[in-house]
């Protein structure tokens, strides 16, 4: 499949209230192309609540229910149950896809309970977390997804803790499908959304969403930053189907040794939120810590991949 095979129809309409270079609208466009019109969309409090534009017009050409911050998984359970009823009654000939779209605040922090509950019930829906690693909509405060050492308005000298990993928490829920994605690899994202659509049960897809105002880089660099996150090994692209993980796209190339990891410093230097790591002088300790952590993960993945060639049947993939 190639770019030219993607549908032309736009369900995200031009002239929205999104910022220039917005990763949220970019991700929505690709997701909508993968899912098509037969989709019911729930938008959880986030930038998407705003960028769809104010009452009485909307940039989203789908049936949309905006919902409260902590409710993503649960509202999907309700819609999904109702869809089953209506299918039974013949109102729907083909069951629409239930899509919940939430940010990292609504996923990692306030919404994790509802998400976990829906996943445990194996609610039939796709949950997309567009992860911009902060509460950008409220002016960039730290979230559970904010990486170590990153500036936010309430971690002014850099976050002291490492981020948690909700994709892996979802893997631990034993849901049928978990995947990560990157804006720089739209075909990879598109195919993962399409696969998610075809699988019944709970599907979790997380896409890294570099946010120009929050991460402090120029609007033209959204895709570049996304790509560097993958090329440095900081953001891993994979999918986990029924407990079997395999790495995809840029991350697969990295692990298979077809490309070598770029130094994370290149990624960090592009973003104003890490400026304090390089100015007035380089913070060798913290930059070193970040690089060491990433290299450790990538090396262990490479090692496991090699092991795998020898022990084909053994599932010993480490969690990234």
């Amino acid at each position: 499949m190639r770019l030219k095979d993607l549908p032309e129809e736009e369900l995200f309409l031009q002239g929205s209230a999104a910022c220039q270079g917005c990763p949220g609208s970019m991700a929505l466009r690709v997701a909508f192309k993968a899912l098509g019109r037969n989709t019911l969309l729930v938008v959880i409090a986030s930038c998407i609540s705003v960028l769809q534009s104010p009452f009485p017009v909307s940039a989203l050409d789908l049936p949309v229910l905006n919902m409260a911050f902590a409710s993503g998984g649960a509202v999907a359970s309700g819609i999904s149950a109702a869809v089953r009823r209506l299918k039974k009654r013949g109102v729907f000939t083909e069951e629409p896809t239930v899509l919940v779209w939430a940010g990292d605040g609504g996923t990692y922090d306030i919404g994790i309970q509802a998400l976990s509950g829906a996943a445990e019930r194996n609610t039939n829906f796709i949950y997309v977390c567009y992860n911009n690693e902060a509460y950008s909509n409220t002016g960039t405060q730290r979230s559970g997804a904010t990486p170590y050492a990153a500036w936010t308005t309430n971690t002014v000298s850099g976050k002291q803790e490492w981020r948690k990993d909700v994709a892996q928490i979802m893997v631990a829920h034993n849901v049928p499908y978990v995947a990560t994605a990157s804006l720089a690899y739209p075909m990879d994202f598109y195919q993962k959304m399409q696969k998610a659509k075809s699988i019944p049960g709970t599907k979790y897809i997380e896409i890294l969403a570099p946010c120009p105002p929050a991460w402090k880089f120029p609007s033209e660099a959204t895709v570049q930053v996304s790509r560097l996150a993958v090329q440095s090994g900081l953001w891993l692209l994979y999918e986990c189907e029924n407990g079997h993980t395999h790495y995809t796209s840029g991350t697969a190339r990295l692990i298979e040794g077809r490309s070598s990891a770029k130094p994370v410093e290149e990624y960090l230097r592009m973003q104003g939120r890490f400026r304090h790591l390089f100015s007035p002088e380089k913070d060798e300790k913290r930059v070193g810590e970040i690089q060491e952590r990433i290299s450790g993960i990538v090396e262990s993945l490479k090692f496991t991949a090699k092991m795998r060639e020898h022990i084909m049947d053994l599932e010993i993939m480490p969690r990234p």
Binding site: A74, S77, G78, A82, Q113, G117
Partner: peptide, 26 residues
């Protein structure tokens, strides 16, 4: 009837809103 054994009352009401918005009696 579909019975959703939610994990909190916040979710109970959220699920009702979702189901009702889809057009069934909840």
């Amino acid at each position: 009837c579909e019975y959703i054994p939610v994990e909190s009352e916040h979710s109970a009401q959220a699920a009702l809103i979702g189901a009702s918005a889809t057009g069934v009696r909840v």
